[in-house]
């Protein structure tokens, strides 16, 4: 695998992640569709790549006092336990099966985001018509 394709894939994932949308949600299909990686490998890469990126963002955000530590504890404990269990489960599932389940997950996320976006533009338009008095 040529290194520049790997960097370009990372660039796209990072770009979307940096904008506050699901970076990993995009990086995994990029690696699977365009680079032909196995689904398990793409998922493992995404998890590992997230770590250095997250550490840098956390340092910057902490300096800007944007992190709410109160909300941290109760979410993290159950999440870590559940994630380990389901990571084991994913690793014991056949590659094509995992890929199909992931694809359905992606479509659900897409529809969810689409609904939110439509709701927001509807709200925006209403605000606009209120302002100009229609």
């Amino acid at each position: 695998m040529d290194w520049y394709w790997l960097i370009i894939s990372g660039l796209f994932g990072g770009l979307v992640g940096g904008m506050g949308m699901g970076g990993g949600t995009l990086l995994i299909p990029i690696l699977t569709i365009f680079l032909g990686f196995q689904q398990h490998l793409s998922q493992a890469i995404n998890l590992l790549v997230f770590i250095p990126t997250a550490i840098i963002s956390i340092i910057i955000h902490a300096k800007n006092k944007l992190i709410d530590y109160k909300a941290f504890f109760w979410l993290v404990i159950p999440a870590v336990v559940a994630s380990v269990g389901f990571a084991f489960l994913a690793n014991n599932i056949d590659n094509s099966m995992l890929k199909i389940i992931f694809a359905v997950f992606l479509i659900c996320i897409g529809i969810f985001e689409l609904i939110i976006a439509i709701k927001q533009s509807y709200k925006k338009r209403n605000n606009f018509t209120d302002k100009i008095g229609i």
Binding site: L6, G10, L11, G17, G18, M19, G23
Partner: peptide, 23 residues
Amino acid sequence: IVDWNIVIWVALGSLIGGAVGAF
């Protein structure tokens, strides 16, 4: 299932992309 040669290059791209994205 981890290949470090792949992880390092993708991570490099992701770090640059992340900074640009935030900007």
